[in-house]
Amino acid sequence: MSRKKPMIFLGLTLVLFASLYAFLQDSMAEKPSQQPAKNLHQPVLVDSTKCIATKEFMRANHMRVLNEWRNSSVREGDRIFVAPNGSKLEKSLNTCLGCHKNNKLFCFNCHMYANVKPKCWNCHISAMESP
């Protein structure tokens, strides 16, 4: 009986260690950087340095993208667009204009050529009107 005692305790400690192993791993693991909960109090970091899709895609589909952005950001509050390359952008006309306003005729040239008259600039302030 007395010879069995250490074996029992060894077994018990082994079981205890095994059951606590996962928690030890967790406490030793590197903490994920304290990401702030994104809520309305904190502005979302926006990287507007890259275009959201290829030139060809945007030429054909920019109106669909803008429609979708408008509906989801205005009505559902889903303001963040995740581009295929992982960068996050704010769904806003200003995101597009952030890069493209260096060409003041960016929208107008093409629309004039194609004879389409979108109503965006009835309210939104275009690069033509801003200084």
């Binding site: 994920p32 702030p36 559902e76 509050g77 889903d78």
Partner: peptide
């Protein structure tokens, strides 16, 4: 054992 990353849920209001 398995963590829930809260910000992933908070992105949409």
């Amino acid at each position: 054992l398995e963590k829930t990353i809260l910000p992933a849920w908070d992105e949409k209001p």
